[in-house]
Design a protein around this nucleic acid. Structure first.
Lengths: 150, 150
DNA sequence: TTGGTTGCAAATATTTTGCAACCGG
DNA sequence: CCGGTTGCAAAATATTTGCAACCAA
């Protein structure tokens, strides 16, 4: 299955999810979701807005914000933890972690090897009901390391 | 060693760090650091500002922001990943993780048991130079679980 | 038709910055 | 005294909201 087919599947999933939740399938919703889903850059709202504008020049920023929030509620995308004031989004629902470059703020996906599995700290359970565990690695990415030595 | 002594030690550490880095030891810096260091709530800038105002009524918000940034550069405090637009700070430099309640946004510290250790995903190394690894658990805290059933 | 959604504009929230006065060393 | 720091005010950045028109179902 190629990436275009995967994307189409995801869009079908989104349509289903909308219907199931009494939400309408609008072109804006599709386009905004597509932008997040096809990017591996974990884009922020502004970036999504700029990209969507190419296809829908009349789209507005607030629609992008509202739509990203809706998509999040539908569990079709989620926010990536980052220490910056800008929220960033990810449509890859497979469990994975992130490497975040502290210099250029690029976010890279880290998938665990088959023999690794997420370990939940023992004490974590004592604080409440766990919904999600998230491992983040912060560091300097290869691209920046290379630029730094120039 | 009681908590007040611990706090005083930290303040001495801060003074050292300031001197070593050509930064001045000002009462604002001390007070702002104290607020973060003595709280277990991982406060945001606004909260720190409100608390400091009680001791220094003339302190300004921007000083709080600037000081928090300085303290971060000195590695005396760090930002806690959270999905909200507000930055939150932690002065506990011991390696630990966080349980974040998705309902009330409270942040709880999780310390690993002696027999546990942080596992760095194998693939992580391929992205660059790792500076820091961060495990976050998101869920609903006991307090909220209790309130929800009322 | 009708209620969820959009675009516009304005508001809010959070954080940052220019600058003159101030004060720690 | 000197240069880092502060307080003030204003600006910048990121996000949210009220509302009338619009359009998916």
């Amino acid at each position: 299955m190629n990436s275009e087919q995967l994307l189409n599947n995801k869009i079908e999933e989104l349509k289903e999810a909308c219907k199931k939740n009494g939400m309408r399938v609008t072109p804006q919703r599709i386009e905004i979701f597509k932008e997040v889903a096809k990017s591996c850059k974990h884009p922020d709202a502004e970036t999504v807005y700029e990209a969507v504008k190419h296809k829908m020049p009349n789209v507005s920023v607030d629609t992008v914000y509202r739509t990203l929030a809706s998509l999040e509620e539908l569990n079709m995308i989620f926010r990536v933890d980052n220490l910056l004031p800008k929220a960033r989004f990810d449509a890859d629902l497979r469990p994975h972690n992130h490497f975040i470059c502290v210099q250029c703020n690029e976010v890279y996906d880290i998938f665990l090897e088959p023999d690794e599995k997420k370990q939940i700290p023992k004490n974590a359970h004592s604080f409440g009901e766990i919904k999600d565990i998230n491992i983040q690695i912060r560091g300097i990415c290869n691209k920046c390391l290379k630029n730094n030595t120039k």
